[in-house]
Simulated assay, not measured.
Amino acid sequence: MFNKTTDQTAPPTGGPPARPSNTKSVFSSDLKITGEISSIGDIEMLGDIDGNVTARSLVVGAEGRMNGTITAETVDVRGKVDGQISANSFTLRAAAQVAADITYHTLIIESGGQIEGHFAKHKT
C-alpha cells in the first residue's frame, strides 16, 4: 500500500536548486535592521532600515522608514526615506516624506508627496 519507488541512498543530481527571482520579502513594522540588505527579488519594508538596500524592487510602506542608499529597478515610497536612491522607476506616494538625491529613468510624484533633494535622470 505504501511503497517507495525512489532510491533514498542515491546522491542528489545537479547542483543546488535555482533561486527564484520572483520572491518577495516582507519586513514587518516591528522590525529594525541595521546593515546591508540584498535580494534578487522584491522587498516590502514596513519597519526601519539603517543601511543600504539592493533589490529588484523596494516598497517602503506608509509606516516604513529607510536611512541609507537604495538601488533597485523600481522604488515605491509611501513612508520616509533619507539618503540616496537609484532606480529605473521611482514613485513618490502622497504621504511620503523623502530627503534624498534620486537618480531615475521614470518618475512619478503624487500630489502631497514631500521631497527635498536633487533629481537626476539616468543617461540613456
Rank of each mutant, 00 (worst) to 15 (best):
R56M: 09
R56P: 02
R56Y: 06
S57P: 07
S57T: 15
S57G: 12
L58M: 10
V59H: 05
V59I: 14
V60H: 03
G61P: 03
G64M: 10
G64Y: 00
R65M: 01
M66W: 09
M66K: 04
M66E: 01
N67V: 09
N67K: 14
G68K: 02
G68W: 02
T69P: 03
T69F: 06
T71H: 04
T71F: 04
A72W: 05
E73W: 02
E73C: 08
E73N: 15
T74C: 09
T74N: 14
V75F: 07
V75T: 13
D76N: 14
D76C: 00
R78F: 09
G79V: 07
G79I: 04
G79S: 03
K80T: 12
V81F: 08
D82C: 00
G83C: 09
A87R: 00
S89W: 05
S89C: 06
S89H: 10
F90S: 02
F90K: 05
T91E: 11
L92R: 09
L92D: 08
R93C: 13
R93K: 14
R93N: 14
A94K: 13
Q97M: 09
Q97S: 12
Q97L: 03
Q97G: 03
V98K: 01
A100F: 08
I102Y: 04
T103Q: 13
T103S: 15
Y104Q: 03
Y104I: 02
H105G: 11
T106I: 10
I108Y: 03
I109Q: 12
I109F: 03
E110T: 00
S111Y: 04
S111I: 05
G112N: 05
G112M: 12
I115Q: 00
E116H: 00
H118F: 10
F119C: 01
F119S: 06
A120I: 05
K121T: 01
K121S: 02
H122W: 11
T124Q: 13
T124W: 04
